[in-house]
């Protein structure tokens, strides 16, 4: 176990030092949006990143889920498992978001059944093989990537309901300096005491409920301190909308792609986040 410093993690009894990077691109929630995925990867390449990470939720919402896998695998994007991927790969009954509103459940089921039926077995196997978390070292920072949160894949971490002391305790208790998550669909960040950080890296599968059609990913750079930039990316959303229409996906989903407002699964939003949206 040479050179195993405090950053070493224990994987099945073997101590491994995490890989090191200086500048990375991170996103979650592809939601079968292969058009946005291509645009985001091209943008990240232009910005000269060392590696690209995807924090899970590859399917849902969008059309033809199989299209995204080659786009992720070919360029070597490092992919993690989200609750959607867990459900699809194991054939669970739903996406584990825990909606209680009948309308949310109605739409969640449409997109879940569609995604399940259109994901080939080969890629279901791929989803099953994905890790539930990733640890790396970014500059001098120990970074832990999670889907919902390090303790629960389906936990929603919203800016307006995550106290700083709560995040700080979480980051410290997982022996990290930085924790990343996605799942909620909105990007935000919080600086914590002692140069610790939490970042919700956002999703690239649908807009951030702000009336704009672009999606967002996160650029993390630790060459001079820890720096996070949220990058808006425009893509040909109209072509995605047409493809969704062709696939018979609900108008409500297509409206979100076209207008940038969420139309379903709104019950989970805390009031501050809900007020910023239109519905």
């Amino acid at each position: 176990m040479s050179g195993a410093r405090s950053v070493a993690t224990c994987v099945r009894g073997v101590s491994v030092s995490p890989e090191r990077f200086d500048r990375i691109a991170v996103f979650g929630g592809v939601y079968s949006n292969h058009v946005a995925l291509e645009a985001v990867l091209a943008d990240a390449r232009r910005r000269d990143v060392d590696a690209v990470f995807c924090l899970g939720d590859l399917g849902a919402f969008g059309p033809n889920p199989d299209k995204i896998f080659p786009l992720l695998v070919e360029p070597g994007v490092r992919v993690m498992q989200g609750n959607y991927d867990d459900s699809i790969s194991r054939g669970l009954a739903d996406c584990q978001c825990g909606y209680t509103d009948p309308r949310d459940n109605y739409f969640a089921k449409i997109s879940y059944d569609y995604t399940f039926d259109h994901t080939s077995d080969r890629w279901k196997g791929f989803l099953r093989s994905l890790p539930e978390s990733i640890r790396i070292e970014l500059g001098g920072y120990r970074v832990l990537m999670s889907h919902g949160s390090p303790r629960k894949m389906s936990e929603f971490l919203w800016e307006s309901t995550a106290p700083t002391h709560f995040l700080d305790k979480m980051v410290a208790s997982y022996d990290a300096d930085v924790v990343l998550a996605t799942h909620s669909g909105l990007h935000w960040k919080r600086e914590l005491p002692s140069d610790r950080h939490f970042v919700n890296v956002g999703v690239i599968g649908r807009p951030a409920n702000d009336g704009s059609t672009n999606v967002w990913y996160s650029l993390l750079d630790a060459r001079r301190g820890f720096d996070v930039t949220f990058i808006p990316v425009d893509y040909d959303h109209e072509s995605l909308a047409l493809e969704m229409k062709h696939e018979g996906l609900p108008t409500e989903f297509i409206d979100t792609i076209r207008h940038g407002w969420w139309t379903t699964c709104l019950e989970i939003l805390p009031s501050k986040e809900r007020k910023k949206g239109r519905f």
């Binding site: 825990g98 009948p102 019950e267």
Partner: peptide
Amino acid sequence: SNVCAGGFRV
């Protein structure tokens, strides 16, 4: 929990 049902008709 704070999760509540929204007001849309299915």
